[in-house]
């Protein structure tokens, strides 16, 4: 049962993720995508006196999607806690060197760096702010990595190509300039 604990190579994980698209179609003619759930969660919690029209719809019709992401969190619990990988993330040598030069002492020791995720005002301000960008951007673009990069590109949709090019441009800028500037 070692495979339950060890990380999965890309050629196992990638095709399985790709199969999400036909599986969602077969289950209920659903388009595979995650970020819409952020909208549904806003629709559920919007107080009546705020009433932004973007969140005024019957979210119960999308309950299946919320059930899916509850499952995603459960899967995360199983993979990350119950069947947790005891080994560090096997990063490439180049990535390890870069991370060491960014003053991380143990690159890949855990899934996410404690330096950025442990409880502190500075970290939480950073995580929250970047989270705002993710929520705002995915809704503005109408999808994220699952809805655009996977479902959209696999169904040859031009809008998704624009979104993916934008996502990579933003990601490259953040990773090459903002992250080093923030850390060093």
């Amino acid at each position: 049962m070692d495979w339950l604990y060890h990380p999965w190579p890309w050629y196992v994980a990638g095709p399985l993720i790709g199969l999400m698209v036909p599986m969602m179609l077969f289950i209920g003619n659903r388009s595979f995508g995650i970020s819409n759930n952020l909208r549904h969660l806003c629709a559920i919690t919007q107080p009546p006196n705020v009433d932004v029209d973007f969140f005024r719809y019957n979210w119960k019709e999308h309950a299946w999607s919320l059930v899916f992401v509850i499952g995603t969190a459960l899967g995360g619990f199983l993979a990350g806690v119950v069947f947790a990988n005891p080994e560090p993330v096997q990063l490439s040598q180049a990535a390890q060197d870069m991370l060491l030069s960014w003053s991380f002492t143990q690159p890949g020791a855990l899934l996410v760096p404690d330096e950025l995720f442990h409880t502190s005002v500075r970290n939480f301000t950073f995580l929250f702010t970047a989270g705002v960008l993710v929520g705002f951007g995915t809704r503005y673009a109408g999808g994220c990595t699952s809805g655009h990069a996977i479902t959209g590109l696999a169904t040859l949709q031009l809008p998704s190509l624009f979104a993916v090019l934008g996502i990579f441009a933003g990601g490259l800028f953040a990773s090459w300039f903002l992250v080093p500037w923030m850390l060093v």
Binding site: T72, G76, G137, G142, T145, A163, A169, G170
Partner: peptide
């Protein structure tokens, strides 16, 4: 699509999490 993608990409590059992995990591 482009503007939203860039804004989302900035967030993804900063925190290394897109929406699917956010839910999965919350579960951990």
């Amino acid at each position: 699509y482009i503007a939203g993608g860039v804004i989302f990409g900035l967030g993804w590059g900063l925190i290394g999490l897109c929406p699917g992995p956010i839910f999965a990591l919350v579960g951990t």
